[in-house]
Write a protein that binds this DNA or RNA. Sequence first.
DNA 1: TTGAAAGCGTTACCAG
DNA 2: CTGGTAACGCTTTCAA
Lengths: 373, 373
Amino acid sequence: MFHRPKPPRTAAPFPRRRQLQRSTIRCMPVTMKDIARDLGVSVVTISKVLRNHDDISEETRKRVLARVKELNYRPNLAARGLVTGHTYLIGLVVPDLLHPFFAEVAKSLSRVLLKKGYYLIISSSEEDEELEAREIDQLLGRSLDALVIASSCLTRDILRGIEEHGTPYVLIDRRFAGTPANYVGVDDEAVGVLATEHLIEMGCRRIAHLRGPENSPGVERLKGYRDTMAKHNLPILPNYVSEQRTVDVQSRESGAESMRQLLALKPRPDGVFCYNDPMAMGAINSILESGLKVPEDIAVIGSGNIHYAPLLRVPLSSIDQHTEEIGERAARLALALVEAKTPPRPKSIVLQPSLVVRASSSKTRIKPRTQEK
Amino acid sequence: MFHRPKPPRTAAPFPRRRQLQRSTIRCMPVTMKDIARDLGVSVVTISKVLRNHDDISEETRKRVLARVKELNYRPNLAARGLVTGHTYLIGLVVPDLLHPFFAEVAKSLSRVLLKKGYYLIISSSEEDEELEAREIDQLLGRSLDALVIASSCLTRDILRGIEEHGTPYVLIDRRFAGTPANYVGVDDEAVGVLATEHLIEMGCRRIAHLRGPENSPGVERLKGYRDTMAKHNLPILPNYVSEQRTVDVQSRESGAESMRQLLALKPRPDGVFCYNDPMAMGAINSILESGLKVPEDIAVIGSGNIHYAPLLRVPLSSIDQHTEEIGERAARLALALVEAKTPPRPKSIVLQPSLVVRASSSKTRIKPRTQEK
DNA sequence: TTGAAAGCGTTACCAG
DNA sequence: CTGGTAACGCTTTCAA
């Protein structure tokens, strides 16, 4: 009936032997306990020294620090996180790391977070909804402090699990209709407007659009394009909006394919606004292959302003989305969420895009050879 | 003198209240304890069900699973890792995520690992030795199962801490002289040979080299270049090997700058082998800016065969390093290390590079317009 | 088939 | 200033 008093822990029968059977033989790293035993102090003391508590004598502190350095001790952050409920780990989910847009976001995000002592754990969904769900599950299981997501999902279902779990999150690039969420992205309708206005100004009249997926950037850029065409009383000819809605992962190939279909139309377009830069690269390829010229026969503009856009076969005009700033803002927003005592009101940050003109859309005869960079 | 027996834990005074003060008010996720209390079983039972132990009655199993699903319970992987000593987390350290080579490696690595239930945690050192050391420290503190590293360090010092800590690791792309380590990369000397032989075959005689950093790829590619020039009795003219040894992060700019210096030399080179593709892109830019033509006046070849090489202003000849395979092999090697009971002998995997000819080096008059892709 | 106890490496709390 | 104790959420062991 009575519980036997635990024997004092210090009197363990095999003091230097780990009791639990580990799966590997590999020797474990140094722990506080090791140092404590070594120095004849308690683990608490070690812990305090390491976290700069000021209720430790200078002498003890010195001894501890010396031994810590000597043994190259590293605190186990997982264990620490377990106790404090704070892991200093922030998750990032993107559709494709190879896509320069997301690589750039990851980079600027990471830079800001690192400065504050946070660490980024990145996950690529390959634009696959199911994989994304699994990866987010994994991430939630690792008790991150926050999550930054460029979701490949078309519905907000994915968010429910995250909210239930209680991990704060920031959406980037793509958002969902419905209840507001923390979001950082570009004004996608403005992207469509800017691109289309520019092509019109360059003298294009039969402007086609290689559209993106059914997510918010895809839909809103399309809307910007449609509205602008309407505003200028320009018709959108049949099949001038590419039907396939493929994904970021294979943008270039899909851009090439859609462009081929557009080229078969008559009359054929004299300008194309592409959902993103990789699609535009594919489109340009198809146009050149067919023997036509860019921009003389067909002007092309993309979006994203990827860093090598100026160096392409035909330097690519694009809509700059302020990629770096998206990462920075998302990082700051995420940090604010983590540090907030109580979940603050969702905040939506929408950046204004800007036009970058290069050769692929400059229908003037004097094509600048090296316009920038 | 005697320790008071602990009161039985089940008789805690405030059963539904967490005792520990967390830094945030945010409600904590569901735990096994919650489910156990809920169902009137022990946490052990829950734990066993979740890990498919077969000593649980079908009925209990069903009840548990139902509740688990209902509450959307996710096991805390950090806590699990603490006990099992196995986190299913593998770290990747690269100099620059924006560099397509490393992005591609990350992608293929992640793909293989994910299939086996492992998760990749990526870290970009920005080609900064000190930052790299800090990041590796962080990673080690998170008790990863293994580490994959493309180190920006020139010496193997960084490895000591890792070995002391006992985390198995695989080097990729760059290796260190001295004791053998697990490594996956391309035969860099062969890269230099292949590139130089090709330029010679194209009729170049005054071949320059925009060299990389003082790490193994940089040094070995340089050696391949030197040896090949010697073999063909071709002189390496003064200053024909660019002196700056800048880094991957700013390759393009550094390539452009070095090329400008080469152009000022007389005689000027008629062929350039660049350490990597971004440098080659910068070099081509400088050449075109100076009014000369690629490849007619100066042929250029890079290394890495980045995916957009065919789409550049001048489609870029390159040495393919089998980037994807590097990632795959590194993943498999890392998994082997994790699963090994005892550390196996270090294994070095060296892939043979292959030549990809495009316009930037085809000195024949008939330049193929679209050679591939 | 079930679960109490001990332990993973750390921090919070509080009594000395 | 110091350190014992309990706790974080989980798994392992072993007795019932």
